[in-house]
Simulated assay, not measured.
Amino acid sequence: MTIATIEPFHHSTSPVNQLAKVVGDDLLVPLLGGSEVRYVNLDYAASAPALVEVLDFVNTVIPFYASVHRGAGYTSQVSTSLYENARTTVRRFVGGRSDDLVIFTRNTTDSLNLLAGCVPSTGEVLYLDVEHHANLLPWQQLPHRSLTAGVTLADTLERVRAELSTGGVSLLAVTGASNVTGELLPISELAELAHAHGARIVVDAAQLAPHRRIDISRDGIDYVAFSGHKLYAPFGAGVLVGRPDWLDAGTPYLPGGGAVRRVKVDSVSWATGPAR
Protein backbone atom coordinates (compact mmCIF):
# COMPACT_ATOMS: atom_id res chain seq x y z
CA MET A 1 0.00 0.00 0.00
CA THR A 2 1.23 3.49 -0.82
CA ILE A 3 0.25 6.84 0.61
CA ALA A 4 -1.73 7.59 -2.54
CA THR A 5 -3.87 4.45 -2.18
CA ILE A 6 -5.19 5.39 1.27
CA GLU A 7 -8.29 7.32 0.35
CA PRO A 8 -9.45 10.06 2.72
CA PHE A 9 -12.59 9.33 4.69
CA HIS A 10 -15.81 10.22 2.90
CA HIS A 11 -19.31 10.51 4.30
CA SER A 12 -21.61 7.56 3.79
CA THR A 13 -23.41 7.32 0.47
CA SER A 14 -26.36 5.57 2.10
CA PRO A 15 -29.83 6.84 1.12
CA VAL A 16 -30.90 9.81 3.19
CA ASN A 17 -33.70 7.80 4.80
CA GLN A 18 -31.28 5.11 6.02
CA LEU A 19 -29.36 5.71 9.24
CA ALA A 20 -25.64 5.08 9.13
CA LYS A 21 -24.65 2.06 11.21
CA VAL A 22 -22.94 2.83 14.51
CA VAL A 23 -20.56 0.73 16.55
CA GLY A 24 -22.27 -1.05 19.44
CA ASP A 25 -25.83 -0.97 18.13
CA ASP A 26 -26.08 -4.72 18.83
CA LEU A 27 -24.43 -4.58 22.25
CA LEU A 28 -25.93 -6.85 24.93
CA VAL A 29 -25.83 -5.83 28.59
CA PRO A 30 -26.59 -7.92 31.70
CA LEU A 31 -29.61 -7.50 33.93
CA LEU A 32 -29.72 -8.24 37.65
CA GLY A 33 -31.60 -11.49 37.04
CA GLY A 34 -28.79 -12.86 34.91
CA SER A 35 -30.37 -12.33 31.48
CA GLU A 36 -29.12 -10.00 28.78
CA VAL A 37 -30.91 -7.40 26.69
CA ARG A 38 -29.95 -5.23 23.76
CA TYR A 39 -28.56 -1.95 25.10
CA VAL A 40 -30.43 1.26 24.31
CA ASN A 41 -28.15 4.27 24.68
CA LEU A 42 -30.06 7.42 25.65
CA ASP A 43 -26.94 9.53 26.06
CA TYR A 44 -25.98 10.17 22.43
CA ALA A 45 -26.31 13.93 22.89
CA ALA A 46 -23.34 13.86 25.27
CA SER A 47 -21.16 11.45 23.30
CA ALA A 48 -22.13 9.87 20.01
CA PRO A 49 -20.88 6.38 19.12
CA ALA A 50 -18.41 5.91 16.30
CA LEU A 51 -19.81 5.13 12.89
CA VAL A 52 -18.91 1.68 11.58
CA GLU A 53 -17.63 3.37 8.44
CA VAL A 54 -15.25 5.48 10.53
CA LEU A 55 -14.05 2.47 12.52
CA ASP A 56 -13.37 0.57 9.29
CA PHE A 57 -11.21 3.44 8.06
CA VAL A 58 -9.28 3.59 11.34
CA ASN A 59 -8.67 -0.16 11.16
CA THR A 60 -7.39 0.24 7.61
CA VAL A 61 -4.76 2.81 8.52
CA ILE A 62 -3.77 1.76 12.06
CA PRO A 63 -1.07 -0.66 10.80
CA PHE A 64 0.67 2.38 9.36
CA TYR A 65 0.61 4.29 12.64
CA ALA A 66 3.93 6.00 13.37
CA SER A 67 5.39 9.33 14.44
CA VAL A 68 3.82 12.36 12.76
CA HIS A 69 6.33 14.99 11.61
CA ARG A 70 9.08 13.14 13.48
CA GLY A 71 10.24 10.31 11.25
CA ALA A 72 11.74 9.63 7.83
CA GLY A 73 10.45 6.07 7.53
CA TYR A 74 7.64 4.95 5.28
CA THR A 75 4.97 4.56 7.98
CA SER A 76 5.85 7.97 9.41
CA GLN A 77 5.36 9.48 5.96
CA VAL A 78 1.97 7.76 5.67
CA SER A 79 0.85 8.91 9.13
CA THR A 80 2.01 12.47 8.48
CA SER A 81 0.21 12.55 5.14
CA LEU A 82 -3.03 11.28 6.67
CA TYR A 83 -2.80 13.81 9.50
CA GLU A 84 -2.12 16.81 7.27
CA ASN A 85 -4.64 15.80 4.62
CA ALA A 86 -7.28 15.60 7.35
CA ARG A 87 -7.00 19.39 7.66
CA THR A 88 -8.25 19.73 4.09
CA THR A 89 -11.14 17.36 4.81
CA VAL A 90 -12.18 19.34 7.90
CA ARG A 91 -11.79 22.70 6.13
CA ARG A 92 -14.05 21.47 3.35
CA PHE A 93 -16.56 20.06 5.87
CA VAL A 94 -17.12 23.51 7.41
CA GLY A 95 -16.88 25.52 4.18
CA GLY A 96 -13.60 27.10 5.22
CA ARG A 97 -11.67 29.75 3.36
CA SER A 98 -8.46 28.73 1.59
CA ASP A 99 -6.24 30.40 4.19
CA ASP A 100 -8.16 29.28 7.29
CA LEU A 101 -6.06 27.33 9.76
CA VAL A 102 -7.32 23.94 10.89
CA ILE A 103 -5.91 23.12 14.33
CA PHE A 104 -6.55 19.77 15.97
CA THR A 105 -7.16 19.91 19.71
CA ARG A 106 -8.54 17.67 22.45
CA ASN A 107 -12.14 18.92 22.26
CA THR A 108 -14.27 22.07 21.87
CA THR A 109 -13.22 23.38 25.27
CA ASP A 110 -9.57 23.02 24.34
CA SER A 111 -10.18 24.84 21.05
CA LEU A 112 -11.86 27.81 22.71
CA ASN A 113 -9.17 28.04 25.37
CA LEU A 114 -6.57 28.07 22.61
CA LEU A 115 -8.36 30.93 20.87
CA ALA A 116 -8.63 32.81 24.17
CA GLY A 117 -4.85 33.03 24.19
CA CYS A 118 -4.90 34.67 20.78
CA VAL A 119 -7.53 37.40 21.21
CA PRO A 120 -5.90 40.84 20.91
CA SER A 121 -5.68 42.77 24.16
CA THR A 122 -7.16 45.86 22.52
CA GLY A 123 -10.78 44.82 23.01
CA GLU A 124 -13.24 42.79 25.08
CA VAL A 125 -15.02 39.50 24.49
CA LEU A 126 -18.81 39.68 24.43
CA TYR A 127 -20.87 36.56 25.17
CA LEU A 128 -24.45 35.68 26.08
CA ASP A 129 -25.64 34.19 29.36
CA VAL A 130 -26.91 31.08 27.53
CA GLU A 131 -23.44 29.72 26.81
CA HIS A 132 -22.06 26.31 27.74
CA HIS A 133 -19.16 26.47 30.22
CA ALA A 134 -16.74 25.82 27.35
CA ASN A 135 -17.81 29.08 25.69
CA LEU A 136 -18.05 31.02 28.93
CA LEU A 137 -15.16 30.32 31.28
CA PRO A 138 -12.27 30.90 28.84
CA TRP A 139 -13.47 34.46 28.17
CA GLN A 140 -13.76 35.28 31.86
CA GLN A 141 -9.96 35.22 32.01
CA LEU A 142 -9.92 38.15 29.55
CA PRO A 143 -11.56 41.58 29.51
CA HIS A 144 -15.15 40.64 28.85
CA ARG A 145 -18.84 41.52 28.96
CA SER A 146 -21.77 39.18 29.52
CA LEU A 147 -25.16 39.91 27.99
CA THR A 148 -28.55 38.53 28.97
CA ALA A 149 -30.30 36.90 26.03
CA GLY A 150 -33.74 38.17 25.09
CA VAL A 151 -37.00 36.22 25.23
CA THR A 152 -37.03 36.06 21.43
CA LEU A 153 -34.28 35.76 18.83
CA ALA A 154 -35.17 39.20 17.51
CA ASP A 155 -34.79 40.64 20.99
CA THR A 156 -31.43 38.90 21.44
CA LEU A 157 -30.18 40.30 18.13
CA GLU A 158 -31.21 43.79 19.14
CA ARG A 159 -29.45 43.48 22.50
CA VAL A 160 -26.27 42.27 20.80
CA ARG A 161 -26.45 45.11 18.29
CA ALA A 162 -26.91 47.68 21.04
CA GLU A 163 -23.98 46.33 23.06
CA LEU A 164 -21.68 46.15 20.05
CA SER A 165 -22.57 49.71 19.11
CA THR A 166 -20.98 50.96 22.34
CA GLY A 167 -17.61 49.90 20.91
CA GLY A 168 -14.61 48.16 22.40
CA VAL A 169 -15.58 44.58 21.53
CA SER A 170 -13.00 42.51 19.64
CA LEU A 171 -14.76 39.14 19.71
CA LEU A 172 -18.38 37.98 19.91
CA ALA A 173 -18.63 34.41 21.27
CA VAL A 174 -21.89 32.55 20.60
CA THR A 175 -23.24 29.04 20.59
CA GLY A 176 -24.42 27.52 17.32
CA ALA A 177 -27.03 25.36 19.05
CA SER A 178 -27.89 25.33 22.74
CA ASN A 179 -26.86 22.17 24.59
CA VAL A 180 -29.89 22.67 26.85
CA THR A 181 -32.78 23.67 24.57
CA GLY A 182 -31.41 22.96 21.09
CA GLU A 183 -32.26 26.54 20.08
CA LEU A 184 -30.40 27.72 16.98
CA LEU A 185 -29.08 31.27 16.96
CA PRO A 186 -29.04 33.22 13.65
CA ILE A 187 -25.29 32.92 13.15
CA SER A 188 -25.01 34.78 9.85
CA GLU A 189 -26.91 37.77 11.26
CA LEU A 190 -24.76 37.80 14.40
CA ALA A 191 -21.63 37.65 12.25
CA GLU A 192 -22.86 40.59 10.20
CA LEU A 193 -23.51 42.59 13.37
CA ALA A 194 -20.07 41.77 14.77
CA HIS A 195 -18.27 42.76 11.59
CA ALA A 196 -20.27 45.97 11.27
CA HIS A 197 -18.87 47.04 14.64
CA GLY A 198 -15.27 45.94 14.07
CA ALA A 199 -15.48 42.65 15.96
CA ARG A 200 -14.99 39.03 14.98
CA ILE A 201 -17.21 36.07 15.85
CA VAL A 202 -16.44 32.59 17.17
CA VAL A 203 -19.08 29.86 17.15
CA ASP A 204 -19.18 26.98 19.59
CA ALA A 205 -20.51 24.37 17.16
CA ALA A 206 -20.23 21.29 19.38
CA GLN A 207 -23.99 20.72 19.23
CA LEU A 208 -24.47 22.27 15.79
CA ALA A 209 -21.95 20.35 13.68
CA PRO A 210 -23.62 16.91 14.03
CA HIS A 211 -27.02 18.22 12.88
CA ARG A 212 -26.66 21.22 10.56
CA ARG A 213 -24.43 22.12 7.65
CA ILE A 214 -21.78 24.67 8.64
CA ASP A 215 -20.42 27.07 6.03
CA ILE A 216 -18.14 29.61 7.64
CA SER A 217 -17.37 31.34 4.34
CA ARG A 218 -21.03 31.87 3.50
CA ASP A 219 -22.06 32.89 7.01
CA GLY A 220 -19.08 35.13 7.72
CA ILE A 221 -17.86 33.11 10.72
CA ASP A 222 -14.30 33.94 11.74
CA TYR A 223 -13.70 30.95 14.03
CA VAL A 224 -15.56 27.70 14.68
CA ALA A 225 -14.86 25.00 17.26
CA PHE A 226 -16.37 21.54 17.63
CA SER A 227 -15.63 18.05 18.96
CA GLY A 228 -15.26 14.63 17.40
CA HIS A 229 -16.95 12.87 20.31
CA LYS A 230 -20.27 14.44 19.35
CA LEU A 231 -19.67 13.86 15.64
CA TYR A 232 -19.39 10.05 15.51
CA ALA A 233 -15.61 9.90 15.85
CA PRO A 234 -14.10 7.00 17.81
CA PHE A 235 -11.62 8.88 20.02
CA GLY A 236 -11.32 12.22 21.79
CA ALA A 237 -10.47 15.00 19.36
CA GLY A 238 -11.49 18.55 18.63
CA VAL A 239 -10.81 21.23 16.06
CA LEU A 240 -10.50 24.98 15.76
CA VAL A 241 -10.89 26.45 12.27
CA GLY A 242 -10.43 30.10 11.48
CA ARG A 243 -8.49 33.11 10.34
CA PRO A 244 -4.71 32.82 10.69
CA ASP A 245 -3.61 36.29 11.81
CA TRP A 246 -4.76 36.11 15.45
CA LEU A 247 -3.62 32.49 15.75
CA ASP A 248 -0.19 33.19 14.25
CA ALA A 249 0.35 36.08 16.65
CA GLY A 250 -1.13 34.48 19.76
CA THR A 251 0.56 32.92 22.72
CA PRO A 252 1.97 29.45 21.86
CA TYR A 253 -0.50 27.06 23.45
CA LEU A 254 1.85 24.20 24.37
CA PRO A 255 5.46 25.42 24.23
CA GLY A 256 7.82 22.66 23.19
CA GLY A 257 8.83 20.36 20.38
CA GLY A 258 7.37 21.28 17.03
CA ALA A 259 6.03 24.65 18.18
CA VAL A 260 9.34 26.33 17.39
CA ARG A 261 11.47 27.46 14.48
CA ARG A 262 14.68 27.80 16.46
CA VAL A 263 15.65 27.38 20.11
CA LYS A 264 18.56 28.68 22.15
CA VAL A 265 19.13 28.09 25.84
CA ASP A 266 17.61 31.45 26.74
CA SER A 267 15.44 32.41 23.73
CA VAL A 268 13.09 30.96 21.13
CA SER A 269 11.65 31.80 17.72
CA TRP A 270 8.11 30.44 17.53
CA ALA A 271 6.51 28.75 14.53
CA THR A 272 3.22 29.95 13.03
CA GLY A 273 0.20 28.00 11.85
CA PRO A 274 -1.03 24.82 13.57
CA ALA A 275 2.44 24.07 14.94
CA ARG A 276 2.22 27.17 17.14
Rank of each mutant, 00 (worst) to 15 (best):
T166C: 14
G167T: 02
V169I: 15
V169Y: 10
V169D: 04
S170T: 10
S170L: 03
L171A: 09
T175F: 15
T175H: 09
G176D: 02
A177C: 12
N179M: 08
G182R: 02
G182A: 05
G182L: 03
E183R: 07
E183F: 12
L185A: 01
I187Q: 05
E189I: 05
L190I: 07
L190E: 02
L190G: 00
E192T: 13
A194F: 00
H195T: 04
H197C: 14
G198M: 11
A199E: 04
I201M: 14
V202N: 06
V202Q: 06
D204I: 04
D204V: 06
A205C: 07
A205R: 02
A205S: 08
A206L: 13
Q207N: 13
Q207T: 05
L208N: 05
P210A: 03
P210D: 00
P210N: 09
H211W: 15
R213I: 07
R213D: 11
I214F: 13
D215C: 02
I216Y: 15
I216W: 15
I216A: 03
R218Y: 13
D219W: 09
I221R: 00
I221S: 04
D222E: 12
D222S: 14
Y223E: 11
A225D: 01
F226D: 06
H229Q: 12
K230H: 11
L231S: 15
L231Y: 07
Y232D: 00
Y232C: 10
A233L: 15
A233P: 01
F235W: 14
F235I: 14
G236W: 03
G236E: 07
A237E: 10
A237W: 10
